[in-house]
C-alpha cells in the first residue's frame, strides 16, 4: 500500500503498526514524515548538521526497534521521538561541554544591489537568530524550538521535557525575552525596523 507522508488520514501510530507488520510503504512514509522534524530539532539544539544527522538516525533506529511492541494508548509517536532526540542532544551537549558560538561570529555581508541586499539581510537575520538560539540555556532553547519552530502544543512539550505546562510557558517566555534582548540592539543592521509587522 502506498502512503503519502503528508496524508493526515494515516496517523503516525497507524503507520507504525503497518511498519511493524512489514509494510515497506509505511516505512518510507514514516521516515519522510518524521525524519525532517527530528533533524530540525537536533540541528537547532546542536548547531551542527553532521551531529544532527547522527541524532536523527539514532532516534529513528530506536523507534524502529520498539515498533513491534508499540502501545498507541501510552504515547504519541512524534512526542516519543522528540523526547528521544532531546535526550540524545542533551547527552551530546553535556559530553562535550560545548560553548555556543557568539553572535560576533555571524558573518557581515556587503552588496550594492538593494534586492540582493535585502536577501542577504534576511539571511543574516536568520543566521543571527540561529546564533542567538545557541546562546540560550539548553531547556529554554529546547522549549522555544519545539514551541515556535516545530509548532508543538504546550502539553506535548511538557511531555517531551518531562515538566509541567506552566514550566513550559515560563521557559518559552524567558527564552523569547532573551532572544529579543540579544537581537533588538542590532535592529538596524538586521532590518527589524523595516518590518511591516
Amino acid at each position: 500500500m502506498a502512503f503519502d507522508a503528508d496524508d493526515s488520514a494515516y496517523t503516525d501510530a497507524a503507520l507504525l503498526a503497518d511498519y511493524a507488520k512489514g509494510d515497506a510503504a509505511a516505512a518510507r512514509a514514516l521516515t519522510a514524515r518524521l525524519a525532517p522534524r527530528v533533524f530540525a530539532q537536533a540541528l537547532r539544539m546542536l548547531g551542527d548538521r553532521a551531529e544532527a544527522e547522527d541524532v536523527t538516525q539514532e532516534a529513528l533506529l530506536r523507534l524502529w526497534k520498539v515498533a513491534p511492541e508499540w502501545d498507541a494508548d501510552r504515547a504519541k509517536v512524534s512526542t516519543w521521538l522528540y523526547r528521544v532526540a532531546a535526550n540524545l542532544c542533551t547527552d551530546r551537549l553535556r559530553r562535550k561541554g560545548r560553548v555556543s558560538p557568539g553572535l560576533d561570529e555571524v558573518p557581515e555581508q556587503q552588496s550594492g544591489d538593494p534586492s540582493v541586499e535585502r536577501h542577504m539581510q534576511s539571511a543574516t537575520r536568520l543566521n543571527a537568530l540561529e546564533q542567538a538560539l545557541q546562546t540560550l540555556p539548553e531547556r529554554q532553547r529546547m522549549a522555544v524550538v519545539l514551541r515556535h519552530i516545530e509548532g508543538l502544543a504546550n502539553p506535548d512539550i511538557a511531555e517531551v521535557l518531562g515538566i509541567s505546562i506552566e514550566a513550559v510557558e515560563s521557559l518559552t517566555a524567558r527564552g523569547k525575552r532573551a532572544l529579543a534582548a540579544i537581537l533588538w540592539p542590532r535592529k538596524e543592521e538586521l532590518g527589524f525596523e523595516d518590518d511591516p509587522t
Partner: peptide, 20 residues
Amino acid sequence: ALPDDDFLARLTQDALNAQP
C-alpha cells in the same frame, strides 16, 4: 533546517533494514 535527499535515502534504507 531540512535534511538533504541522500541522508533521507539512508534513513529510509535503515528503516527497511530494521523492519520486522
